[in-house]
Design a protein around this nucleic acid. Structure first.
Lengths: 180, 180
DNA sequence: AAATATTATGCAAGTATTTGCATATGGTTA
DNA sequence: TAACCATATGCAAATACTTGCATAATATTT
């Protein structure tokens, strides 16, 4: 399980509240790690119990208090331990493909619609990623170096979305030509 | 959750034991849905309790008995209901990318090794998929039609793996050039 | 002859994730 | 002015998934 390590990675860069983490996941890490707010809050509680993070409450008037988490030395040690260990290949479970596989039980038009819905989401994601890439390219050389590795993960997002869209083109063509 | 529907899809095509399903998942569905044997057996038990599948025991001498599952009318109805409903976008959780994101805490050589390990797995998968594609293309036109939709899911696997490998090339080049 | 792989199924316990609910304030939109 | 969105956190219950163990026979490899 690596939600734990994804959180430790983010906390190692900056102290954050659960809500901050939620936003950071949606932003720069959202294209390769996703977690709901419930998951994040639960995980933070566990990390605190294990002594991998410290917490301090920041009172705010006119807003609920924030609980700001900071990685501990034990947390940093755990992160390094995990980083040194081989990552096992993530398994793919893609419900859309199950649907297409079984799609002969469905009117072709419905498959086309479903695909179109997903296409919109993927196109939006790609645009977001390309905008992030443009931001990166606009950085000065020295600053770019700091984001070299995150940028490589962004490239995965970009190439992945482009491949998805190329595939969707193929599928649309096949469904259009085909009375089956 | 769609392990349920992946299983119903496979059973709708052919009656199977849990072990058969395991093999079928590893084969033609393995590039988009994965499940362990424990998961499959547990799910079959649940599906049976819900009346979506029937079961009959086939005695075999010199081998353990097989429990062969068959989809029921209720099971087919549930499958159709699920197919008609929009699929929500699958979320991506890629631990390798977490590692690369945090990779500045690690010697570059270790990242390169990790990537090389994953590359081998992805190359093998691509070869498997290309072999399946060759099989498909060798079919007569009439037969090909039966596998049109599964073939489209195979294309997703192929384009996905090719994109992964293209990305890995980029990463290797970046890590090689870069003292960071 | 021994070790390993394949066929075939399952339980039990632990961990992870989802779903639904709950609370409270302030700002924006209709 | 009502509805909704953003901020901010959380519990409880249900579902899903992983890990470790267990059994038992045959076939293949070393």
């Amino acid at each position: 399980m690596s939600l734990k390590h994804a959180i430790l990675t983010l906390l190692d860069a900056d102290d954050s509240s659960g809500y901050d983490l939620l936003k950071r996941f949606r932003g720069g890490m959202g294209f390769f790690w996703n977690a709901s707010h419930q998951q994040i809050y639960q995980q933070l509680k566990t990390l605190h119990r294990e002594g991998l993070v410290d917490v301090s409450v920041e009172a705010q008037d006119s807003r609920p208090d924030r609980k700001v988490y900071r990685i501990t030395d034990d947390g940093r040690a755990e992160l390094r331990r995990w980083l040194a260990e081989p990552v096992k290949a993530g398994k793919i479970n893609d419900a859309l493909l199950v649907k297409i596989y079984a799609g002969d039980k469905l009117p072709a038009a419905e498959l086309v619609e479903e695909l179109a819905r997903h296409r919109i989401a993927h196109e939006e994601r790609l645009q977001t990623f390309l905008a992030l890439e443009a931001d990166y390219r606009a950085l000065a050389t020295a600053e770019r170096r700091d984001y070299r590795l995150p940028y490589l993960t962004l490239r995965r997002g970009i190439l992945g979305e482009q491949a998805w869209l190329a595939w969707a083109d193929e599928v649309e063509r096949a469904l259009a030509e085909g009375e089956w």
